[in-house]
Write a protein that binds this DNA or RNA. Structure first.
Lengths: 238, 238
DNA sequence: CACGAAAATTGGTCTAGGCCAAAATGATGG
DNA sequence: CCATCATTTTGGCCTAGACCAATTTTCGTG
């Protein structure tokens, strides 16, 4: 006679659910017991505790800092729409969205990017690398490639604070249609450094190809969003 | 003097990249060395090898089976569009898409679902639970809730093979607009059983609210897609 | 040769503990 | 009272190995 079907569950998963009940009503920032304490309390090894906590961190339920401890995480950022402007949309939710410009430069298009933007390989294109912040916290790393003459792009983007706004107001370019692809990706060293996530944390990898009203592709963007904080929203006609 | 910035990388991550170079030109299905062999070969512990392999499995680069071994995974399913019909769209890519119906039933709406479908709580609504398959492999678990009178829904969906087709052809309901939200989620026991993924594997959790041309919400769907095989595509006007 | 049992192989889970690095804590001197 | 430095605490990474379960392989038997 077996005890129950649930007995087949990995030990770390049972522990994960128990920790979840511990924190479900807790105020964000509340410290949970240390890994060593939990290991002793639940009669398990620290390795198993770390596996349970690791998944809860990946899911955005816990945060942890070396030397400080592990604590209840703030709730997920309720959907930030990608379409329209990130900046405008976040504001409509009462969030302060900002973008830190890392680099604005001009460089010859590599074959893949050239194909996407429908230009000859080697044509000069613009590269805009930014870190998107919501309420001061880094949420996404974004690299946009833009075709066409865009004089003084570094300045206009900095002044407008929004790439789409600069394209529209300063260059008369309107993005009328976008094609987004969304997939999962695990955080590597770059994301750890730029977005303050843990190695291996699940991320959303978003590619966007933006078209002008007459169907010309002008924007190719690759973004990596924190999977534990972000929710992608797309509304569309079928 | 420090050796280099790369020296700060975790050992498992370096190993992961080395395994990646081992398999980058390999035919899908090729077995890689056993965990014990890799541990010895790279002078590390099996735990570290498993962490490296685990991430590669999560990323869809490797598959592994207990007793059999670890082998190179087939490439990611190139974007399956969510809009239009899943069935039609997969076919246009030369893939055989199918859906296995798990359950079709009628039940009273709980408060949250009632609110989304703009009906009174307790109103009878339809529930359609399916497993979506591509080339015979389970790709997603999907539960749809539908408002309105849909007589004999179980039969019509089974015959049409597509929920959207049944709504359109048999009930005259056209979904004209959809709002999708996409976020990450880690696989739990349910996904492990239904979708043949590993515990903790990153998944895409997709919610869809579908509207008729006159703005009436009629469809609320919650889907869990395999993050290692799937790419979500949304094309829209801004 | 075919079949089934036994053995070997391989991944799955877990333990116990060591060493390191970052942060918090406490002692100490100005 | 405050700044500074040593100590302690806590998470981060890794090792070595045990035991289990699924699968494959081997081998004895009919």
């Amino acid at each position: 006679m077996e005890t129950s079907a649930a007995a087949a569950l990995p030990k770390y998963y049972v522990l994960k659910e128990q920790i979840l009940t511990l924190i479900e009503d807790a105020v964000p920032g509340t410290l949970i017991p240390t890994e060593r304490a939990l290991a002793e309390q639940y009669g398990t090894s620290r390795t198993t505790v770390r596996q349970a906590i690791g998944e809860l961190v990946s899911e955005g339920r816990l945060d942890r800092t070396q030397g400080r401890g592990t604590y209840v995480a703030p709730p997920k950022v309720t959907h930030v729409r990608q379409l329209t402007s990130f900046t405008d949309d976040a504001a409509s939710q009462g969030l302060t969205a900002a973008a830190r410009i890392v680099d604005v430069s001009v460089l010859p298009a590599d074959p893949a990017t050239a194909r996407r933007l429908a230009v000859e390989p080697g044509t000069d294109i613009h590269r805009v690398e930014r870190i998107r912040l919501v309420d001061g916290e880094p949420l996404a790393h974004e690299v946009a490639f833009l075709a066409g003459p865009l004089p003084d792009l570094a300045r206009t983007v900095a002044e407008r604070g929004s790439l789409y706004a600069a394209l529209r107001e300063d260059y008369g370019i309107r993005i009328a249609e976008v094609e987004d692809t969304v997939e999962t990706k695990l955080a590597g060293p770059a994301e750890v450094q730029l977005l303050d996530v843990e190695m291996g944390a699940p991320m959303l990898l978003v590619h966007r190809l933006g078209f002008t009203p007459d169907g010309q592709p002008v924007e190719w963007t690759e973004s990596v969003f924190r999977g534990d904080r972000f929710r992608f929203v797309a509304r569309m006609h079928v």
